[in-house]
Amino acid sequence: MSEPQTSASSSLEDGGDLLATESGMPEVVDHVAVARLYGEPLFQLPQDLYIPPDALEVFLEAFEGPLDLLLYLIRKQNFNILDIPMAAVTRQYLTYVEQVRKRNLELAAEYLLMAAMLIEIKSRMLLPPKKTAEGEEAEDPRAELVRRLLEYEQIKLAAARLGELPHYGRDFLKAQVYIEQSMQPRFPDVHIVDLQGAWADILKRAKLVQHHKITREELSVREHMSIVLKALQGRKFVEFEKLFNPAQGVPVLVVTFIALLELAKESLIEITQAEAYAPIYVRLSYTPA
């Protein structure tokens, strides 16, 4: 590639606007490179350049099949579909099939099948019509082809109408609103066991607030002080617990305890204990003779 670059540079130095090589390809056209290779300007095409035949294809019309091509040829030239001029249509059809066959033989297979059918219809039209047993005229050889073309045209028009309808994702989008999870509180599922526990708690609280009548009982501290002194007379020591009778009820026990405190305050009794955590004893106070 060094030689072409040298010749191109020499042509630029000479100031020529157009230089031709032996193959007829231009080296420099208005000081513009023919192409660029890896970013470098290329002023002359290489001699061994190979371009595959199918590197560039231009499709002027795209058809979905033989019927689509036939319908296009008929409608473009305003032919009566019920009275198709088979010679003109077949000639144009074969021209297109020949172009397709050169590019893609597999694609041309179904087009060739339709071409054979057109040639057959054209041949049958050249023959004299056969009369039926009832004396009626024979069916037109083009009838089957016309029926298929009309059905195909109806389906194609229906597909076009469907394509014009608004499509989701093409013509409109579904509105969506995203809400943060924190704004959507999700409450836990409640089971039957939870309901039973809640109901039991309600019943328990209801019992606590039930109405009850309070009666007042007159209890005398002085009287119980006398009862305690009588219980201590003639005894050296009496255990603290033996002075209380739980069967008398809480109010009596409270008044008895207050009575003991009053007696101890007035120094009429002594409350002693041998050591820590040892039993507590109560006795009358000792008075010297």
Rank of each mutant, 00 (worst) to 15 (best):
T256G: 03
V34I: 13
R235Q: 13
G135W: 08
L232Q: 05
E136C: 07
Q44S: 13
A274V: 08
R205T: 09
S2M: 09
A200D: 08
M125Y: 02
P288E: 12
Q47P: 03
P53W: 10
S123F: 13
F240H: 06
K76E: 12
Q210P: 01
A274D: 08
M114Q: 04
Y277F: 10
F244E: 01
A8D: 01
A116K: 13
M25L: 13
D201W: 02
Q44E: 15
D83R: 11
E144Q: 13
E106R: 15
D30E: 15
K265G: 01
R91Q: 14
M114C: 07
E241P: 01
P128N: 07
D14Y: 14
E217G: 12
E40T: 07
E217R: 15
L118D: 00
Q154S: 11
Y50L: 02
T215I: 08
A88K: 06
S23M: 08
Y96P: 00
L268G: 02
D194V: 06
P188L: 11
R91L: 10
E180T: 12
I74K: 04
Q181W: 04
K122F: 01
R161E: 12
V190G: 13
A108W: 00
I121N: 02
R75G: 00
E22T: 11
V238T: 11
D48V: 15
F63H: 10
E61Y: 03
E3F: 15
K236S: 15
M117L: 12
E217D: 14
A198W: 04
F79A: 03
L107D: 00
L268A: 08
R36P: 10
L232M: 09
M114P: 00
Y152G: 04
L208I: 01
E136H: 09
E153G: 01
G24F: 05
R216A: 09
A158V: 04
P128W: 05
